[in-house]
Amino acid sequence: MAEVTAVAKLPSNGRSKFLQRFIRHRLALLGGLTLLFLFIACFGAPIFAPFPKNQQDLLLGPVPPSFEHLLGTDDLGRDYLTEILYAGQVSLLLALSVALVSTAIGVLVGVLAGYKGGWVDNLFMRITDLFLVVPAIALLALALQGLGRSPFSIVLVLSLIGWTYIARVVRGQVLSLREREFIEAARVIGANDRQIIWKHVLPNLGGVIAVNVALAVASAIIIESTLSFLGFGVQPPQTSWGNMLSQASGLIGTSKVYLLYFPGLFILIAVLAVNFVGDGLRDALDPRSGSGSMQGRKRK
């Protein structure tokens, strides 16, 4: 038993190891901090923004970036940084909701299809095929035309289209999990399907789900921006990064073209940051990556 106590003293707890690996991933850390900064700046806009929202200064008109207006002002003399921060609230919130809702739908479908197998699996997978072959943008534009363009319907429609990827990934994982002996072991001690799914299947999907949420946020920001740019997304007077781009798009070829760059830059930064976080999560949650986790490799 001496060996047992020696092993017990090793400071190895799953959670702290995960944190170590994540921090070691420099880009992920940078992405995480950037994202945190963006969130605080956008949602703390009433505190941090240099000017009140929508404060017009018609006499000033559009001015280029200066110390007083870091990103300049638009035609109505509104401080552009302030506008971008408030628009960020809408963009980030939409993206996050879409990521969470679509992941929830995808996980539900994926788990049911993978775990039940048979006709349930077939049915769900043919439905995902259907979603994958129809061009998403066209579908989105049509759906939003019909449902109206409130943020709620945007989240709904984007989620209804975005769940297919995670559903496929989860289904694949569940198919392999289902055959693992610890699932059978749970059945032998008397657990039913519901208990097995909650206690053994979902926790083992945690990594995949976390990674997917991150990557879905990134793609949702882009899709929302695309839609808003095309005029199908967030409608003025509500602003998002996408429709700020759209409003500024008329300025190409004029001296005020910087108004187009700034929202684009914020989209770029947010998407890159979220992607880095996603990569970091994936690496940190995979026991085979990084060092000091030989034990995770023991099986097979």
Binding site: F182, E184, A185, V188, G190, K199, P203, N204, G206, K298
Partner: peptide
């Protein structure tokens, strides 16, 4: 009637602590 599996690596859920593995059958019954 209970079963002990051949592969002690595959038959324990990697995400559960040993305590939670042992508590599970007690809670289920």
């Amino acid at each position: 009637i209970q079963l002990v599996f051949q592969d002690p690596y595959a038959s324990l859920d990697p995400r559960q602590s040993i305590a939670s593995i042992l508590v599970e059958p007690l809670q289920l019954h």
